[in-house]
Design a protein around this nucleic acid. Structure first.
Lengths: 106, 106
DNA sequence: ATCATAATTCGATGAATGTCGAACAAGCAG
DNA sequence: CTGCTTGTTCGACATTCATCGAATTATGAT
């Protein structure tokens, strides 16, 4: 994980709409959620708008999609979030336990 | 930490320039870094551009600034990153390492 | 074949972003 | 006071983004 990659994923999550989408997918568990239900759950009026956001999330690897007949199942890609959190903790946090007591970083 | 707040911080970090800035500040430790040195270290040509990014980071609470005579010391606010990582782990991660095994979460 | 459903792609529009150079404000040194 | 350093603010520009409705593709049902 490099800075560019991390920034791309952070940017993808850095929109209220997309963060809600992602959270809904996480809560849906490994079963995932069809686009349609996702739209109802997140409350995005236009299907095209949701499709746009979804596409951005898929591009960064945070979300995967699988076609089942006519419906498209979307799922959160847990290892991706895992790696992102790991990057933030390692590269962008002062000590092992973020923000803990005495940090004397140089 | 709510969705809006988290999204704002993620967006702030979701730019290669700002993520580099933030990382440089973390590495500088609690001593912080003057804007000038930050500019050299991160490699942003225009001071006004850096100032702009810095402002965004300060607005989200991820960075703090303290004036010392003519120089402005910038510091990473560790608790903010701590809270952000905590939010991601609790709300947006299904992996046991990150929190719940939320397959039946509703 | 016809129609309905699921979702994407296209085209357009208004808003936000990133970047720069120039002008400005604030503090220190001669 | 004058000049130098530090950093911000302003105005402008091109780029990207979010959003929508309409058209399109693909699949399944009658």
């Amino acid at each position: 994980m490099n800075v560019e990659q991390a920034a791309k994923q952070l940017e993808a999550l850095g929109s209220p709409a997309r963060l809600r989408i992602y959270r809904a997918l996480v809560r849906a568990g490994h079963a995932g959620l069809p686009v349609r239900q996702l739209q109802e759950r997140v409350g995005i009026p236009a299907a095209s708008t949701l499709s746009h956001h979804l596409h951005r999330l898929v591009l960064t690897g945070l979300v995967s999609q699988e076609r089942q007949a006519t419906t498209l199942i979307c799922r959160a890609v847990y290892p991706a979030m895992d790696a992102l959190i790991g990057y933030l903790a390692e590269e962008c946090c002062a000590d092992e336990r973020c923000g803990a007591t005495g940090e004397e970083a140089a």
